Amino acid sequence: MSQDKTLNRQILLASRPQGEPSSQNFILREQQLPTAAELAEGQVLIRNHFLSLDPYMRGRMNDGKSYAAPQPLGEVMLGGTAGEVVASRNANFTVGDKVVGMGGWQEYFLVDATQRGVLQKVDTTHIPLSAYLGAVGMPGVTAWYGLVKIINPKAGETVVVSAASGAVGSVVGQLAKARGARAVGLAGGADKCRYVVEELGFDACIDYKQHPDLRSLSAALKAACPDGIDGHFENVGGMILDAVMLRANAFSRVAMCGMISGYNGEPIPLAAPQLILSNRMKVEGFIVSEHMDVWPEALKELGGLVASGKLKFRESVAQGIAAAPEAFLGLLKGRNFGKQLVKLV
């Protein structure tokens, strides 16, 4: 075998977690890549620069019924990536092109780019490459869809968002403010809350770690939302959703995006589901990949806001593919601050 072959380091799912996942569920593998001359017609080889880590990946690790097929055992972990074309036998992609796709937890990504939509060329003139995995990528569009299409706030209404300092929540609040609504966040810790108010421009942020029971959290929400809650963007579920529902106004709307409080199989019953009826609430779950028709509209607004500096975002960056499992486990525990990425170059 020739010596000029490049090694590709990958993280595979080795076993399914029982309850809380651990680093033991992952394994690092090295694989040899084809040279540029060995690429098949239509293939593109990408050097991944950034890997996106997102809460949805936790659900994929399970074998149960869900909206998406489980992550197969012994295969590269699924995930969004942003990188650069290093070899191409496809007329639509040239060496040096910056691209985003579902490259997975690996340093290189070999793909048949004749399939429509597997690779997206991106312009990094005014938008950093990493932002295409966050504010101008799937998390940003998730925030946009839940806020614009489900909550649809009017000026003067109050919108609450859980996990407000994260990749999705931070965008929700800023988009709500741009539409003239009040934005109130929930986040874990004084530093995150300060950032949400001072940097992102939310009207208030509640540190849920200071409110360990429903009564306390509900009182904090009442103080932050004196006119009640008209829209809620839910990333966490559990007690936070219960507290929000106690303060919800008639005809309030809830966009159900994530329920991270139950990702390891914990039961998360609703304390007072009757409030959905008495408040005539609209509670709607959504999966952003099922709404590809709105992505261009969403990305146009998000890209413009990021390029002009009006939409702020923060990143937590782990270094190197081997750091991905621990960074992912940290994300599930809220150790990240903003969008969790792994830098691969």
Rank of each mutant, 00 (worst) to 15 (best):
G338Q: 02
D63F: 09
V254H: 07
Q340D: 04
I150L: 06
Q115A: 05
Q274R: 14
G173M: 02
D191S: 06
D230M: 07
A204H: 03
D63K: 15
Q24C: 00
M256V: 13
A250G: 05
L311G: 04
A14E: 09
L221I: 11
L110I: 13
K222Q: 15
L200Q: 05
P55Q: 12
G304K: 01
H126I: 09
I287E: 01
N279Y: 01
Y195P: 01
E284G: 02
K192R: 07
L53H: 11
V160N: 05
D203W: 05
L13T: 04
V244P: 06
S170N: 10
M245F: 04
L53Y: 08
A113G: 13
G330W: 06
G64N: 08
T158E: 11
G104Q: 06
V306F: 07
D213N: 11
R280M: 14
V171H: 00
Q340I: 10
A322W: 00
V184T: 12
P296E: 03
P72Y: 10
G285F: 04
F337T: 06
A219S: 12
T158M: 06
S278R: 10
A14K: 14
G185N: 07
W295F: 15
A243M: 11
A250K: 13
Q115F: 12
G19K: 04
A219T: 15
E290K: 10
A36E: 15
V159K: 00
L12N: 02
L331I: 13
S308N: 14
N235R: 08
K333I: 12
Q340L: 14
Q71E: 06
A155V: 12
